[in-house]
């Protein structure tokens, strides 16, 4: 296989999963306030996989999605990427505006705004938590949004990361709420040169010598 591909062992992947879950818990509190319902953000998987496998494995394809992305700068560089299917984006709008679920059924600037704001709020909360846990500097940018075919959006984003090598590292999550399920993808995409920084800080944090 290629020499510049990312390699992470199982133990380190588990570290990343724990830290991500802790950050997801603090993001859950913030997203619950924002959507005015109790919502849990769960970390499903920490993945290290090839671009080809993601393309085959994700079933978004030509389904229309809302995608919002925030770029990260500082000690860790990369992106936060949020993807919601149309129906889930509509549900979020209804929750924020305190309307009965099902009221929103068209894509407009309000939907776009809610998706952007969700990305902003969850992304900031998640990065604040990483900053506190890992003692690192992390600056998220203002998010950008697009609404298009899921497969096209993913290909667009992943192609940027494909330039670094064949493997892609990402963390995916889901949102759960008692009576209305909102699911979405939340990818954390660090650049390969940021991964060692992330792993080193995580190892320090978990060994307990940081505090």
């Amino acid at each position: 296989m290629a020499e510049n591909n990312i390699q992470i062992d199982e133990k380190k992947l588990e570290y990343i999963r724990i830290i991500s879950q802790m950050s997801a818990e603090s993001a859950s509190i913030v997203i619950s306030k924002w959507l005015k319902k109790e919502i849990t953000l769960n970390v499903l998987n920490v993945n290290l996989t090839t671009i080809e496998d993601i393309s085959a494995g994700m079933k978004l394809d030509e389904e229309i999605v809302f995608a919002a992305a925030t770029s990260l700068n500082g000690d860790i560089r990369g992106h936060f990427l949020f993807i919601f299917k149309l129906e889930d984006a509509f549900k979020m709008v209804d929750m924020v505006l305190k309307r009965p679920i099902g009221t929103t059924c068209e894509t407009d600037e309000v939907v776009q705004s809610v998706v952007l704001e969700t990305c902003n709020i969850v992304g900031s909360s998640f990065s604040n938590s990483l900053v506190n846990l890992l003692m690192i500097k992390l600056l998220p940018s203002a998010p950008v949004v697009c609404c298009d075919m899921g497969g096209a959006v993913l290909a667009n984003v992943f192609s940027e990361y494909a330039e670094y090598g064949d493997n892609l590292f990402f963390i995916d999550t889901e949102y759960l709420q008692a009576d209305t399920k909102i699911s979405g993808y939340f990818f954390i995409l660090p650049t390969p040169d940021s991964l060692p920084v992330m792993l080193k800080s995580m190892a320090n944090g978990i060994d307990g010598d940081s505090k």
């Binding site: 992305a69 770029s71 990369g78 940018s141 950008v144 697009c146 096209a152 667009n156 984003v157 940027e160």
Partner: peptide, 17 residues
Amino acid sequence: GAKMFAGFSANTISDIG
């Protein structure tokens, strides 16, 4: 060859299209 994320930070999601 589309450019889908207009306004994205240039250092990463550049105009790869």
